[in-house]
């Protein structure tokens, strides 16, 4: 009996030890500092929680928008190519072609502030100051006819703003509305006939099966492998090229995007690529007057694009660090060799 009891106690104490060893807290991790939290905690909520002190105006916003946003979203927020439309689309949500913009669809202005601040400009995220984000947000409101051109947005009046479509969202109701319908399992003679009503081949939008027998679908890597220039510098330049990738492509199958493709950019006459239609007037003119891309001209242009070609549509602030610029130029020059 005693023996039995003692083994019972051993069992109990084993159990206690086991649960102790795995009960929480485990003491893992370390406290986050105030600066660490404020560096990463950048989110904004519709009730204004998280919004920093600051302000911006439509007028300043227009300039910032033109420099940072218009190359993809268009001068009027109309969206270029397949980039998102930001303005207009009112009264289209119940049509066959709904246009979902900040003005027509988005429920909360805080979403605009938060998103521009955390993810824009595309390829150069989190580079805008708080006041710049206020200005761009104000300008997007202006593009949607929600405010006048003298409007100023700040943390003080932010919560007064309501977007027109706020009330048109409702909670998921599939369970009550749909799932009850989708519950019958018919096995035999479930309908009279099955006639083909729509065919994918009519549209013919499916990508063709590409030839993968060689490796021609890789691009950047090939360039680096096949040149005898400074390989390390080219590799560094390839990293710097990430700043350009939102608009420019390089490689065997590179096509024009928001900006022209950069294959054989060395020796190319500026602004004259036949199948690229979005050059500024000035770059075309400078090309006609003899501007040819070489180490010297490309360096000057990329260092400060708007200074070198006034009116350029390339909305890029430039690369100021000389080692980055040198590596990028080396990388760009490498494309001449392969093609």
């Amino acid at each position: 009996m005693l023996k039995c009891l003692s083994s019972f106690f051993i069992l109990i104490s084993l159990f206690v030890f086991y649960s102790f060893a795995y009960s929480q807290p485990l003491g893992l991790g370390r406290p986050a500092t105030y600066n660490e939290v404020s560096s990463w905690d950048i989110d904004i909520r519709p009730d204004g929680k998280g919004l920093p002190v600051g302000s911006g105006s439509v007028i300043i916003g227009e300039e910032l928008y033109t420099d940072n946003c218009a190359s993809c979203h268009g001068d009027f927020g109309e969206g270029i190519d397949r980039w998102p439309e930001l303005a207009g689309g009112f009264d289209t949500l119940d049509s066959e072609d709904p246009v979902k913009t900040v003005g027509s669809y988005w429920p909360y202005l805080s979403t605009v502030w938060d998103y521009v601040h955390r993810a824009m400009p595309f390829g150069n995220a989190q580079s805008l100051s708080n006041d710049e984000v206020y200005s761009i947000t104000a300008y997007i409101m202006y593009l949607n006819d929600l405010v006048d051109e003298d409007f100023e947005l700040s943390n003080l009046n932010f919560e007064e703003v309501r977007l027109p479509n706020e009330q048109n969202f409702y909670q998921d109701n599939r369970e009550d509305l749909e799932n009850v319908i989708y519950s019958k399992r018919c096995m035999k003679d479930c309908k009279k006939e099955a006639i083909i009503t729509k065919r994918a081949v009519v549209l013919d939008v499916t990508p063709e099966e590409e030839d993968v027998s060689d490796n021609s679908n890789s691009n950047e890597d090939d360039i680096v492998k096949t040149v005898s220039l400074d390989a390390k510098l080219i590799k560094d330049g390839e990293k710097v090229f990430k700043k350009c990738k939102a608009c420019h492509r390089i490689g065997l199958n590179a096509k024009n995007g928001t900006g022209p493709h950069l294959n054989n950019i060395f020796g190319r006459v500026a602004g004259q690529l036949e199948d690229y239609k979005k050059y500024s007037k000035n770059i075309k003119k400078m090309g006609q007057e003899g501007l040819i891309w070489n180490t010297e001209t490309l360096t000057s242009f990329i260092e400060n694009p708007k200074k070198y070609i006034t009116g350029t549509k390339m909305n890029f602030k430039g690369i100021k660090k000389s080692d980055e610029l040198e590596a990028l130029i080396e990388y760009l020059s490498a494309t001449t060799i392969i093609n």
């Binding site: 909520r45 988005w106 909360y108 998103y115 969202f169 409702y170 109701n173």
Partner: peptide, 21 residues
């Protein structure tokens, strides 16, 4: 938080112009 991916995107627009979120 009603961020971009749960307002502008990933909401289901119905033919009456209202959207499920």
């Amino acid at each position: 938080w009603h961020h971009r991916e749960e307002t502008s995107k990933y909401t289901d627009l119905f033919s009456n112009g209202k959207a499920r979120r």
